[in-house]
Amino acid sequence: MWKDLPLYPEQASTIAQPVDLLYFFLIAVSAFFALVISVLIVIFASKYRKSRPDAKSAHIEGSTLLEVIWTVIPLGLTMVMFAWGTILFFDQARMPADALEFTVTGKQWMWKVQHPTGQREINDLHVPIGKPCRLTMTSEDVIHSYYIPAFRTKQDVVAGRYSELWFEASKLGTYDIYCAEYCGTEHSKMVGKVTVMTQQDYEMWLSGAVANETPVQAGERLFTAMRCITCHNSTSTARGPDLTGQFGKDVRLASGASVNFDAEYVRESILNPAAKTVEGFQAGLMPTYQGQLKEEDILSLIAYLKTLGADKSAQGAAAK
């Protein structure tokens, strides 16, 4: 019977067990207090049951010592919970360096996923076991939330910004993906399955699926097709800044401030170039690509700019 009514979902990622452990700790503390409180209520309510109509209670004003005790003990316990939970959370907030990079775009009411190698899928996700996977996510419309209970992880997916999520699957099988943030009529149908496969099966699956361009290839194509390259190249007459090797560095702006060249910044530069002007370049020269590039295209361009300068050959290609 207990088999049919499990108390926690499958533990299918490396953090599932640590999260459950913390959960059990909190349950133990809660159950302890709930028990103490209900036992005391029952004992007091029966032992001090009103005996005669005119019986008087003891006169007790209070006790500072007791107040201190029942302030300090719960405080100490909550601090343990806080520290433990925070460490777990930060482990998940820090992205591993060597992860497989997926992109996820949410829209009413589906999840569009692209693999590092270019394959696309809708709602479902296939991942290899034992490999950190990093999802860079955005939304085309309202807020969604990518939730995999078996991995104990979730992250809101917000239009206009990139959110990130990573996990390392630790158990083969198929698990549910839900949208956890209410997003309109078919919210409860914005669901899918994640399949955890062995590395071998994953590669088989990849070769079976129609391989599109990888995000980096698509980005490279767009960089030429959308004429970015006419302004952004390393020639001396270039009208725009050279983007080679920029990703992750700080950029000085005309205003004197500086800004980190990250995904959000690239996105803003493409959709709203006037927002920040690079020092030494003409404001208003770069056209906005609002409405011409889809969210996935921008994700591809970002993927491409990340690789630009990371290896020298790509740098050469951009300069040509």
Partner: peptide, 22 residues
């Protein structure tokens, strides 16, 4: 009391990632 302590489950960040919006 039950309502209160389960609030802690949600206030602990590492657990909230799982139980938030459920």
């Amino acid at each position: 009391t039950i309502g209160g302590v389960t609030g802690l489950f949600l206030a602990v960040m590492g657990l909230d990632r799982h139980v938030h919006d459920t």
